[in-house]
Every structure is written in C-alpha cells, then in structure tokens.
C-alpha cells in the first residue's frame, strides 16, 4: 500500500500510475460533491473532470500543509461554482443588505431519509439557494467565505440559506409530491 504522501510525490513527478491511483481514490467521493451542485450527472462529471485536471496540473502547489482531500475538495467545489459564474448574478437577484433580522433556527427533521432522497431534495432547490445551502450546510464554509466565493453580500448568503431552509421545510411537508 502506497502512502498518500508518496502518491502525491508521484503525481508531482508526473507519474501516470500515481495519478490514476489518486484519481481512483477520490473520484467517486468528489463526484458525490459535484452531483450536489448539478441536477444533471453529465454536468457533474464535466466539473469533476475539469477539477481533476486542475488538481493534477497544480499539484506542485500543494505544500503538504493541510489535508489533501480538503485541498482537492476545494478545487472541485470552486470548479463547480465556476460553471455558474457567468450566470451567478442572476441567481441572487435581490441584495438583502437591508435585512438585518436574526435568522431563526429552523429545525428540519430529515431523519430516516436516504441520501438519494436528500440529493433529490437539494436538486429541487432553486440555483441560488442550492449553491449557498451546499456551501454552508454541507461544505461548511462560513457566510463570509461564501459571500467572497459567489461575489454576493454576507446578508445575501444568509437570506438565501434561510430561504433554502424554508423551501426544504415545505418539501418535507409535501414529501409525496416530490418524486
């Protein structure tokens, strides 16, 4: 069994075998990330493909300072977001800078639901909500980071998340209508 550090070194040297091993190790997991951003599996695979090309072409920039999976994941997420870039501004029509209200914690009860079902729920969110929901709830970025990544205000990020949650709640109520 080759260690990850050896794998990464191999990739840095351009070793084909190392590259393939690394790909095999992370591809399925990263497609699992991509698929949350796209309703369509083809689009998700495109993003995965582009993301991995970036990973391999920039692997010499990985300094072994943090988790390698985290590094790949960040690239994959950014690549997925890039697919939205040209249209990004349309997904966040209103700037909710004026809204300063405290966003209530809306408790959602999604227990006993399969991941596949949850994925469907996420896919049913409008683009803007989905991006913020993915980034905040699952990737774990802060609103500040999300605001920077998407080029929106922090309050927009917050309000989109709030709306996403409300939307999810509605979906939960009308569960049977979803599929």
């Amino acid at each position: 069994m080759i260690s990850e550090a050896e794998l990464i070194n191999g990739c840095k040297k351009g070793d084909k075998k190392a590259q393939k091993t690394l790909y095999d190790k992370y591809a399925a997991k990263m497609l699992g990330v991509c698929i949350r951003y796209f309703r369509n599996i083809d689009e998700a695979e495109d993003a995965l493909q582009e993301g991995f090309i970036k990973v391999f072409n920039n692997i010499d920039k990985f300094r072994n300072e943090g988790s390698f999976e985290g590094w790949i994941r960040r690239i994959i997420v950014n690549t997925s977001l890039n697919y939205y870039k040209s249209n990004l501004k349309h997904y966040f029509g209103v700037d909710y800078d004026e809204i300063q209200e405290v966003i209530e914690d809306e408790k959602l009860n999604f227990d006993n639901l399969s991941v596949e079902y949850l994925l469907k729920v996420i896919h049913n969110l409008p683009e803007g909500y989905r991006l913020v929901f993915n980034l905040y709830e699952i990737e774990g970025y802060s609103h500040k980071e999300i605001a920077e990544m998407l080029g929106v205000s922090i309050n927009t990020s917050k309000s989109q998340l709030m709306k996403a949650k409300r939307s999810l709640q509605k979906v939960l109520v009308k569960k049977e209508n979803l599929i």
């Binding site: 790909y23 997991k29 497609l31 699992g32 995965l48 774990g140």
Partner: peptide, 22 residues
C-alpha cells in the same frame, strides 16, 4: 442543529464516475 445532519449524511456519499472521465 441540522447542518451537522446534512454534512453527516453526505460525508461518505459517493458516485462512481463513468470511464470517459479519466
């Protein structure tokens, strides 16, 4: 409260990409 739930749910979520990707 629920963010950890979603994160948890998708933690090990995988989808095998098709051959052409590689």
């Amino acid at each position: 409260n629920n963010d950890s739930f979603f994160r948890e749910a998708f933690r090990d979520f995988e989808r095998k990409p098709s051959e052409k990707v590689w």
